[in-house]
Amino acid sequence: MKTPHDTPVLRVAGRPVGRYVTRPELPGRLSPRPYLHPVTTLAGTAVTELSPADHLHHLGVGVAVPDVEGFNFWGGRTYVRDQGPTELDNHGAQRHAAFQLSDPDGFVEELRWVAAGAELLRERRTVAATELTDTAWALDFTFSLTNITAGPLSIGSPATNGRPGAAYGGFFWRARKEDGPPDVFTAGTEGEARIHGARADWLALAGATWTLVFAGATERTRRDPWFVRTTEYPGVGSSLAYDERLTVAPGDTVVRRIVTVVADGRLDRDGAAALIRKAVSP
């Protein structure tokens, strides 16, 4: 897989912790989009995967939506009601337009979401990396999607199209796959079955030698249910369209902000809560 174009590197305390690929060369069915990979802990452990064999369209960390007015900005097959996953010629692309700011600790980017020769959404993406401790840092990721068409745009998911529990679409982090599934827990519960679809303030994904702690950092983002997978594959996202479609009026903007703690070692509940509080505090 070639990545010949812009690839800014995020750094924390002088150490590289993430590479951002703006113009990846991908097969058409993967819905081209910018992504962060590899993302690493401060000790250098990779905590993302790119196009793993189980899901080729999982691209590190980014924004992916399977249904924007019927167009697929996720990759792979499209879930069709009463038909199931179907190969369709409906893939859109997120196109990097420009960096409005680019520093070692973050960037502000403008993107255009294009499908069938037309621009549907314009995105402003802000990403920042911040040191928390000598073993943990935070990735602050905000995306703002503006409908620039003359009519309303409807954002959906396989769940809203008839596949229960498959409400993926929005911010998504494909995590490191290891011999066993990672543990997942919140402040009050644990396990994929209990946390998938929950509206928890934060959730933690703990692997063999690393922990990721995710939090919605705005009121609207906190209301989005979490999409969680640990057994089939390790991944976490926030659901834009969990049980109903999200309609964006012409000129309106959808804003979401997710902060992720990236830590070496396996954090317990108290440790995870303390770090995420530090990461999202003003």
Results as ranks from 00 to 15, higher is better:
residue 12 V to S: 05
residue 12 V to R: 04
residue 12 V to I: 14
residue 13 A to D: 05
residue 13 A to S: 07
residue 13 A to G: 05
residue 14 G to Q: 02
residue 15 R to N: 04
residue 17 V to D: 06
residue 17 V to K: 06
residue 17 V to G: 03
residue 17 V to P: 01
residue 18 G to Q: 07
residue 19 R to C: 03
residue 19 R to K: 08
residue 19 R to T: 06
residue 22 T to C: 15
residue 23 R to F: 02
residue 23 R to G: 04
residue 27 P to I: 14
residue 28 G to C: 09
residue 28 G to T: 11
residue 28 G to H: 10
residue 29 R to Y: 15
residue 30 L to F: 14
residue 31 S to G: 11
residue 34 P to G: 09
residue 35 Y to R: 02
residue 36 L to R: 05
residue 37 H to Q: 05
residue 38 P to D: 04
residue 38 P to G: 06
residue 42 L to V: 03
residue 43 A to G: 06
residue 43 A to K: 01
residue 43 A to Y: 00
residue 45 T to L: 00
residue 46 A to V: 15
residue 49 E to I: 02
residue 49 E to G: 06
residue 50 L to P: 01
residue 50 L to A: 10
residue 51 S to G: 13
residue 51 S to R: 15
residue 54 D to Q: 15
residue 55 H to A: 11
residue 55 H to F: 09
residue 56 L to P: 11
residue 56 L to W: 12
residue 58 H to G: 09
residue 58 H to D: 08
residue 60 G to Y: 02
residue 61 V to L: 10
residue 61 V to F: 02
residue 62 G to H: 01
residue 62 G to L: 00
residue 62 G to Y: 03
residue 62 G to V: 01
residue 63 V to M: 07
residue 64 A to S: 15
residue 64 A to P: 09
residue 65 V to K: 00
residue 70 G to Q: 04
residue 70 G to F: 01
residue 71 F to V: 00
residue 71 F to R: 04
residue 74 W to Q: 02
residue 76 G to F: 08
residue 78 T to G: 00
residue 79 Y to N: 07
residue 79 Y to H: 12
residue 79 Y to C: 10
residue 80 V to G: 06
residue 81 R to N: 13
residue 82 D to C: 08
residue 82 D to H: 13
residue 82 D to Y: 10
residue 84 G to T: 08
residue 85 P to Y: 13
residue 85 P to F: 14
residue 86 T to W: 03
residue 87 E to W: 14
residue 88 L to W: 04
residue 88 L to T: 03
residue 90 N to T: 10
residue 90 N to S: 11
residue 92 G to F: 03
residue 92 G to Y: 05
residue 92 G to P: 07
residue 94 Q to P: 01
residue 94 Q to K: 11
residue 95 R to G: 01
residue 97 A to S: 13
residue 97 A to P: 04
residue 98 A to Q: 10
residue 101 L to H: 14
residue 102 S to V: 15
residue 103 D to H: 08
residue 103 D to F: 01
residue 103 D to T: 13
residue 105 D to V: 01
residue 105 D to S: 07
residue 106 G to M: 12
residue 106 G to L: 14
residue 107 F to K: 03
residue 108 V to M: 12
residue 108 V to R: 13
residue 112 R to K: 12
residue 113 W to K: 00
residue 113 W to C: 04
residue 113 W to N: 05
residue 114 V to S: 03
residue 115 A to V: 12
residue 115 A to K: 06
residue 116 A to Y: 02
residue 118 A to V: 07
residue 120 L to V: 04
residue 121 L to F: 07
residue 121 L to W: 02
residue 122 R to N: 02
residue 122 R to E: 08
residue 123 E to K: 00
residue 125 R to E: 11
residue 126 T to K: 10
residue 128 A to G: 12
residue 129 A to C: 12
residue 130 T to D: 10
residue 130 T to M: 05
residue 132 L to H: 11
residue 133 T to G: 14
residue 134 D to L: 09
residue 134 D to C: 05
residue 135 T to Q: 14
residue 139 L to G: 06
residue 141 F to G: 05
residue 143 F to E: 06
residue 143 F to Q: 04
